[in-house]
Write a protein that binds this DNA or RNA. Structure first.
Lengths: 139, 139
DNA sequence: CGGCATCCAACACGATACTG
DNA sequence: CAGTATCGTGTTGGATGCCG
């Protein structure tokens, strides 16, 4: 954790910013967290394990492709666990892992920030459209 | 904040999940947070105000197009402030607003989570490639 | 039921060239 | 220096159809 801040706080000098290594897997996590389907799925799974069709049902806008794809990604990262029951009518349940729950907490914080500030953001966008003037004297 | 949880915790019943309204602006925030350029810019601006060219310099991989575009988005949302100095050699400085700083904190938390868990995630992806078996008995 | 493969449209992004 | 406009392209993601 301290590693991140130490990498971030460095004044943007000549060429380097934060280490490419760190930015790399941070970007990877960002790809998951920033993906709306991932967030929606993780959020939906907060209540407990759900079947494939239940997820598809709970998240109206999603396509089978995206549902399957995102679930695979999340399963690969160990965020959700996939349990297939070898029954005649196939049944597969997805559930948040401990790692997934810790991610959920972070995502929830993010959502909380969004809720706290969406009014201000919306307001900013509105006034921006009206008069985005922002200039300063020459000195 | 409680609004989000209350919307999330509801068991995915018939058709509803979380309110479309909430998911809407959460998605909007996600579009910013999930965008690597936005994160990079916000992170780079942590140190203080920077000029357009300084940002381009500090973030090697970015194109003018993306830099301008992302900066506009961030400025519209009130995350960064744009100050143009009417000098002969044009000078424009970008700086995090209080809102932007609060976002930075959230992003930093996210990055911290990434740092804390990237080893486990990477490990999960590895073992997933080896033996992703996960089945349960019929009951 | 759960999942995968294919096709195709939309869009995001980068590179380039030009302006004030 | 700080952008804007345009074009080409790579990827994303939805719709469809088929299989265990």
């Amino acid at each position: 954790m301290a590693g991140v801040r130490s990498a971030v706080r460095r004044v943007p000098g000549p060429c380097s910013h934060w280490d490419d290594n760190e930015a790399d897997f941070i970007r990877h996590v960002l790809d998951r967290v920033g993906d709306k389907w991932s967030v929606l799925i993780v959020g939906t799974l907060e209540a407990g394990a759900l079947r494939y069709s239940e997820l598809a049902y709970a998240i109206p806008g999603i396509s089978q492709r995206m549902l399957t794809l995102t679930l695979q990604q999340l399963a690969q990262d160990g965020i959700v666990s996939r349990t297939a029951y070898p029954e005649v009518p196939p049944r597969v349940e997805y559930e948040l892992t401990p790692l997934g729950r810790s991610l959920l907490r972070v995502v929830l914080d993010l959502a909380a920030w969004a809720v706290d500030n969406h009014k201000e953001i919306h307001h900013n966008r509105t006034v921006f459209a009206e008069g985005p003037v922002s200039a300063a004297g020459t000195g």
